[in-house]
Design a binder for these strands. Structure first.
Lengths: 128, 128
DNA sequence: TAATGTCACTTGCAATAAGCAAGTGATTCT
DNA sequence: AGAATCACTTGCTTATTGCAAGTGACATTA
């Protein structure tokens, strides 16, 4: 996990955000987590067809960056379920705005469920 | 410019948005355009130090995707200034949410000018 | 006038990352 | 015992990035 601001190409908050999540896959995983998916196979089965090695490395990076946490959901062999942290859940407004934008400009893309725009980051945090 | 929905890896609006602008540089250019920059050299001089070949190819892609337009600002040799289209200006809420998120979670990143959060997409369209 | 400079790129190439297919290990199911 | 499942990892090919240098059209300076 990057800790020092000096590690970033600039201190601009937009640029830093892009260094952390500015790629074609990270937010797809965050979307799936928002939709309640939590297991490796769940992410793999999304329609975008993320390659398995990329999925593994993105989950690792998201965890390193404090966006995701994992917890064992079974033993022998130990397997982990992934969840959004508060930091990760707070990406929801970003996702929502991206969806609003695409809905406005890209014909024939899917309309997400009404609930997607009503959910708040709080709602996404697993109750412990 | 991608026209058919079938060209995308899925019809999910989030995924499509990421295919269009999900990389480390495109939104940095959009940010610069929001700040009133318009010439090639302006983008080059931003603190992130975008490589010149990437800048040229991103400007081309952004234009192909209808996010920016270019207009000649001089002859001999003809040189172009770049501007946000309405589609591009409507990315502002996305940028704003990304900035809110980074400000909340990344210590020591810069605070954008107050005006950044007050501007609307309309304000970004050049008056003709 | 010749040389130097500026601006907006393009080109070549090495390094990095993405994507595909196959393999692995632990365990359960047949 | 053999086949299947799940969550990965490994190997390898292809695509993208990033760095450095080059190019072309003109303006400026010596």
């Amino acid at each position: 996990m990057k800790k020092k601001t000096e590690d970033y190409r600039s201190k601009c908050p937009l640029s830093i955000a892009l260094e952390l999540i500015g790629d074609k896959w990270s937010l797809v995983i965050v979307r799936d987590l928002c939709m309640g998916k939590s297991k490796y196979g769940d992410f793999q089965s999304s329609p975008e067809g993320i390659p398995t090695n990329i999925l593994a490395s993105r989950l690792r990076e998201l965890e390193e960056n404090g966006i995701v946490t994992k917890e064992p959901y079974q033993d022998k062999p130990t397997r982990y379920a992934y969840f959004l942290t508060e930091k990760g859940a707070d990406l929801l407004p970003v996702l929502q705005q991206l969806v609003v934008w695409t809905q406005k400009y890209v014909l024939d893309c899917l309309t997400p469920p009404e609930s997607f725009f009503q959910v708040t980051p709080q709602d996404l945090l697993r109750k412990r």
